[in-house]
């Protein structure tokens, strides 16, 4: 049998594949999308590596920059907020506290910033070849996770060096909080990357929104400050609103996990007049943190499914709109 005949025979046995996802409703959706991604996981790995490489490609220090930036931020907040504004007086192990918040926030903001532009910046590929387009926001998550991993090593290293390694069940909050951030980050990255194709303002809007959310999350000041402010200003609901943000909750849980000093009464120094010790009381962690995390995780998964559906509808026109 000739090569051509063999090929014809093999093709005749293959089922037809419908090209182009159905534009409206019906079949597959989320699960089908995930299956398609799974089939392309090798490509996903390649894209992640490419993104990391591309980011630092012409720089001498290369990937060290992924550490220099957060460490500089740590230094700035440590000096400006911790010392000048005096936040460190009420927050024991202030460096660990700030770096923990910055690390998790860095993951979130990197997923969203890189994710939002991921479709537009891969126009060259999207216009020429078909591949499940969710792979691009996912690759942004991958490279953000890499940077997060590097910072985590530094963070854990610091807790060990400072004798603050949090050996307790609370450590489980770390993966839980990271998961929440990943779910919400991915959902937003998928949604925003699609919207950004049609409306380039989205990427600028995202920058502004991230700035607001950074300061609206307990990263450089602690949750207890928020509660005190709520009490002082007689707005008891302020704390509830604040903690309604999944990001705030995730960051609090993360801190509870990695920042051991936050869960103890810590002697911060002695009062010079009376000679009595100044004690920073343990942080008032929100009640039912576990339940909150669980609930937010479920809501996040729902949001992710919705984001994927929206993406799936919009992606049919990506190639012609970019």
């Amino acid at each position: 049998m000739s090569v051509a005949q063999e090929r014809a025979q093999r093709l005749a046995a293959l089922p037809f594949e419908r090209i182009g996802r159905p534009v409206s409703g019906g079949g597959g959706g989320f699960i089908a999308g995930m299956k398609e991604i799974a089939a392309h996981r090798e490509l996903l790995g390649l894209l992640v590596r490419r993104e990391l490489k591309q980011r630092y490609k012409d720089s001498a220090l290369g990937f060290l920059w992924s550490l220099i930036r957060p460490l500089t931020m740590l230094l700035i907040y440590y000096v400006a907020i911790g010392q000048f504004l005096g936040a460190a007086r009420g927050i024991p192990q202030f460096a660990i506290f700030v770096f923990a918040g910055l690390t998790l926030w860095g993951l979130y903001s990197e997923i969203i910033t890189a994710g939002t532009t991921s479709i537009v910046s891969n126009a060259g590929l999207i216009k020429k070849v078909y591949l499940p387009r969710e792979i691009f926001p996912l690759a942004s998550v991958g490279s953000a996770l890499f940077n997060f991993g590097v910072q985590m090593i530094v963070l854990v290293g610091a807790t060990v060096v400072l004798g603050q390694f949090p050996l307790s069940w609370n450590l489980l909050y770390v993966p839980a909080a990271t998961l929440i951030i990943l779910i919400y980050g991915l959902a937003l990255a998928i949604l925003l990357s699609a919207l950004n194709v049609y409306l380039r303002d989205v990427q600028y809007l995202v920058e502004v929104a991230l700035l607001i959310f950074f300061w609206a999350s307990p990263i450089v000041y602690s949750w207890s400050f928020v509660l005190e402010a709520a009490e002082r200003s007689d707005l008891p609901w302020l704390g509830d609103v604040y903690i309604a943000s999944p990001i705030s909750t995730a960051i609090l849980a993360f801190q509870k996990g990695i920042w051991a000093a936050g869960s103890q009464d810590v002697v911060m120094g002695t009062n010079e007049q009376t000679g009595e010790p100044i004690i920073a009381a343990a942080q008032p962690w929100p009640a039912d943190l576990d339940l909150r995390l669980l609930l937010m995780g479920l809501i996040g998964i729902l949001l992710l499914a919705i984001a994927q559906r929206v993406f799936s509808r919009l992606q049919g026109n990506f190639a012609q709109e970019i």
């Binding site: 293959l14 419908r18 070849v129 012609q320």
Partner: peptide
Amino acid sequence: VIGGIIQANEGTLERRGRMAALL
């Protein structure tokens, strides 16, 4: 449309076998 890079508004497109495109 055959390559699946853009989607048709109407009609269906079916294909089988491995495809490579130089567009």
